[in-house]
């Protein structure tokens, strides 16, 4: 592939005038960036605007579309929709539980694996990463089976250890924590990113802590954590964004149950759109989610000034 690309190299202009080069650079710069820019317009921007417009109509697949103003939004916010607040609450609960736990878990694993005295790091790294390779359809299938109260692996182990067993995804109170456990299982990707960040911390900083007589805790709190804040920030933002969009677990494992306790927002949106054909209402749901996520991200960005460490430049 590289050879093919190389053929079209432009060899005609050996150091022309500077102005000409500038102009050419701008032209080619825009040209080269155009796939991403066009992609943004076609697949993000236009659909977003379309979605906004649809959300002001009563489009339901088979009817003639009519503008109904803010009715879709009003119907959601005024409580006449029995599921809107429920699904928003359920999803928020999930995000609040899973994001910090996943960050903590992934961070601890990364710190452990960054320890030079550990042998077989590569093996552990691979093992921890393995679950993220599983298609969510398959992992949902596996966990559905692991969570089975009698035949499942989890309760089997608990019984063997004479510990109390649980109903897991079959109980209103434990369904979300159960899905969080499942998300911990696939947190290897986050761990790898942390690991990358850890490897970028200059060794001298630890050495100077040692010179000052500091111990491991000092190293952690005065060097590792401050220097890792940009990576933590990145993973936090990503965790929030993806957490709010959790879908397949509800679709495959719980169908939103029991008693709507796992009625994730995107699952509800999907059901509204494709099960009940209410495309307009679903578009409104989508926009509300967008605004919620944008606001949250904004908050995280705003507060980041206080806790994210910046190295001089960047």
């Amino acid at each position: 592939m590289r050879n093919i690309l190389a053929i079209s190299g432009n060899k005609k202009h050996p150091s022309g005038s500077l102005a000409r080069n500038r102009k050419q650079e701008v032209l080619i710069g825009v040209l080269f960036a155009s796939p991403a820019i066009l992609g943004f317009f076609i697949f993000i921007f236009i659909p977003m605007i379309a979605s906004l417009i649809i959300s002001f109509t009563d489009y339901a697949l088979v009817n003639k579309m009519q503008f109904i103003g803010l009715d879709n939004y009003a119907g959601l916010f005024n409580g006449s929709d029995p599921f809107f607040y429920k699904s928003l609450g359920v999803t928020t609960y999930y995000v609040l539980l899973s994001t910090p736990l996943c960050l903590l878990f992934a961070f601890s694993m990364a710190v452990l694996l960054n320890n030079d005295s550990i042998r077989g790091k590569a093996v552990f790294r691979t093992i921890f990463y393995l679950p993220t390779l599983i298609p969510v359809v398959a992992s949902s299938m596996i966990w559905l089976w692991l969570f089975n109260p009698d035949m499942g692996l989890i309760n089997t182990i608990l019984r063997a250890l004479h510990l109390p067993t649980g109903m897991w995804i079959y109980d209103e109170n434990t369904v979300i924590p159960s899905i969080v456990i499942m998300s911990l299982w696939t947190t290897g990707g986050t761990m790898i990113i942390f690991l990358a960040g850890l490897q970028g911390i200059p060794r001298q900083l630890y050495e100077s802590v040692e010179l000052d007589g500091g111990n491991a805790a000092h190293k952690m709190f005065y060097v590792t954590i401050p220097l890792m804040t940009p990576t933590i920030f990145f993973n936090l933002v990503m965790g929030l964004i993806y957490g709010f969009q959790v879908f397949a677990q509800a679709y495959i494992m719980t169908e939103g149950g029991p008693n709507n306790a796992s009625l994730f927002y995107v699952f509800y949106l999907y059901r509204t759109a494709f099960k009940f054909s209410k495309m307009a209402k679903a578009s409104a749901l989508g926009w509300i989610l967008f605004i919620v996520i944008a606001l949250l991200t904004l908050v995280v960005f705003k507060t980041s000034k206080d806790w994210v460490h910046t190295e001089g430049g960047k």
């Binding site: 029995p82 599921f83 209103e172 939103g256 149950g257 029991p258 008693n259 709507n260 059901r271 099960k275 009940f276």
Partner: peptide
């Protein structure tokens, strides 16, 4: 029916339990 059931069926879950 579909929307009614999506309301009633989860509510009955607590009865079955």
């Amino acid at each position: 029916w579909g929307e009614l059931d999506s309301l009633v069926n989860p509510a009955l879950a607590s009865v079955w339990l």
